[in-house]
Design a protein around this nucleic acid. Structure first.
Lengths: 355, 355
DNA sequence: GTGAAAGCGCTAACAG
DNA sequence: CTGTTAGCGCTTTCAC
């Protein structure tokens, strides 16, 4: 009596527990060991119901659980409570260096609250996204952090049905909590910086317009140039159809016909493509053309020239997203907070006075 | 009759299903709709037992499931079958660009086999790793892909108790399946390349020796230089205590006292630190000192000079790791295959003939 | 404050 | 080939 009933996987004591095959010790085992009814053991183990059990009993149960290395069975608990303590994080592309820092901080906050993070990579494919969402739903994720950012996106309609937080995208409908960098302000700062250097012909290599970031930064560029009194004829715009060096190269070739003295790129990869286009055209950066990127991905400081770019507070974005989600899970009907975190311009060597 | 018994979350049809709160349709609902017993419905739905059900019945059940949008409850199934169809992937650091491509291909293979990938980031901390492993175990992960690579690692002892595959590390004990790039060959190729350029004084900036990669590459360097007939006195070695630019810088400063004409770095980050040390010392790369990195992280081609480095087949590593694991889950007692995938040297601008 | 009992949704062994 | 039944491990009323 008092020992786990199940010993099909009893393991030698010298094994490291975490990597060994599970020895299944159940609540019944704990209860038997502590000499109480399983129901009572359950109450004692559960923070919320603990106060309905005599302190001495609680102690006995807790000790038994400790001694036996009791781990509640997630399946049984989930089946009963309909909660998984798992959160889905839906990313468009894990290899995009923008996301890992966000994921890390999300994971940290959620883990501290007892949640498991289910990371999922949609490969920028709506069908994959649908499939993965279905999977996450089947696993009864308690909430979602969604970083895929098509402007036309089913999530915009799903509204407040399931706890979720949007990252890097603010839907028009303010029903869904969201956190993002203040990209408009970031683009604004970039344009101001160029204007203050003396630029008057500033182009924009816009990102994909079906992504909310691409669209948002484009609008922000329009606003900023207008606000600063630049003629729209002096502000050529080309559209890249993806966030990639190749698309950036194509768009930049087009752009260079308009001979801007400075260019604001939709993101860093587009800026890199632009760098190639400049080299191709025999133009030097920054002496002939200044260039600003967006995102501040790693290694930019080591480029030639080091790229000036708008820095996003990735870690903070992740932290806040996780907090908002926990909030939402706790109070699904609370107001949908929407957070805009400040971006700053990291000035490096790719911007200078025009000739 | 024939409708889901549970309508607390019935959703308007215009909502996108994937993002809406779950409407719970159970096996009983499907069975009722198809007018069979739940047990029969279960058999019909399950590939493996389907042939014990009349084809016409199978069709009816399948259609009912489709019509009602039936999703089996993972908890109930897991509780019953003691399988989760989830696999834990344990990474030391998600922000290391080495891992995302591996994770992506792992995820792809596992998803195709019906498994969910649980990605977990240990932040290079053994305690965090232990905690996360416990969590994964509580969630009854069916297997593990482990990419953390301390040489002293509990996993090395846990042996074949739970299905797992090691990535980027071959334990001495050949009990655990593993897949890695052939780093020794990679280092060998790098040294050969330098020797063929005419270098005779070749240094090594070794990575942390408590990591199996750091140690393995160090040994490979020793082997290669000896094999090629270089005097060990001509092959200075400094140790970086982490894979970082800062550590690389420190180790490189030390190394430069020995005046090698070429340096093989333990990884790319160490190589970057080395680049800084060279600049500091007023040495030009590659004209004064040639430099080779390891891993081929992104952006290296855009550096000044573009870094020559050993390329790891990350995608293939991930694919093979996932396959090995599926194998292992299917036949836990099969032989532990150990795969060594070829690395190739990507020659760029940081290596040249010595003066 | 504790015990008893029901049941979450599923699968698998066994009967028919 | 189909139905019946039991039970995975847990939480949660409801009695006592």
């Amino acid at each position: 009596m008092g020992l786990p009933s199940n010993d099909r996987n009893r393991l030698p004591s010298w094994r490291s527990a975490a990597y060994a095959a599970p020895v299944t010790v159940t609540l019944r085992d704990v209860a038997r060991f502590a000499d109480v009814h399983p129901g009572t053991a359950s109450k004692a183990l559960n923070e919320a119901t603990r106060d309905r059990v005599a302190p001495a009993t609680v102690r006995r149960v807790l000790e038994a659980a400790e001694r036996l290395g009791y781990q509640p069975n997630t399946f049984a608990r989930g089946l009963r409570t309909r909660r998984s303590y798992a959160v889905g994080v839906v990313l468009p592309d894990l290899t995009n260096p923008l996301f890992p820092p966000i994921v890390r901080s999300v994971e940290k906050v959620l883990a501290a609250a007892g949640y498991t993070t289910l990371i999922v990579d949609t490969d920028n494919d709506p069908a994959t996204e649908e499939r993965l969402m279905t999977m996450l739903r089947a696993r009864h994720a308690d909430g979602f952090i969604i970083a895929t950012a098509r402007r036309e996106h089913p999530v915009a309609e799903a509204g407040d049905l399931v706890p979720m937080v949007l990252v890097n995208r603010l839907t028009e409908a303010a029903l869904v909590p969201a956190v993002a960098g203040d990209e408009a302000a970031g683009i604004g700062t970039a344009v101001e910086h160029l204007v203050s250097l003396g630029h008057r012909r500033i182009g924009h290599l816009a990102g994909p317009q079906d992504l909310s970031t691409g669209f948002g930064r484009y609008r922000a560029f329009l606003d900023a140039t207008q606000r600063l009194g630049l003629a729209s004829a002096d502000c050529p715009i080309s559209f890249a159809d993806s966030y990639s060096e190749a698309s950036g190269l194509r768009a930049a070739r087009e752009m260079l016909a308009a001979a801007p003295t400075a260019i604001v790129a939709g993101n860093d990869l587009i800026a890199l493509g632009c760098l190639d286009a400049l080299a191709e055209a025999g133009l030097k950066c920054p002496s002939d053309v200044s260039l600003v990127g967006f995102n501040d991905m790693p290694m930019l400081a080591r480029l030639n020239p080091p790229l000036t770019t708008v820095h996003l507070p990735q870690e903070e974005i992740g932290t806040e997203a996780a907090r908002l989600l926990l909030d939402r899970i706790a109070r699904p009907d609370g107001p949908a907070k929407r957070l805009l975190l400040p971006c700053h311009l990291t000035v490096r060597g790719s911007t200078a006075r025009p000739r």
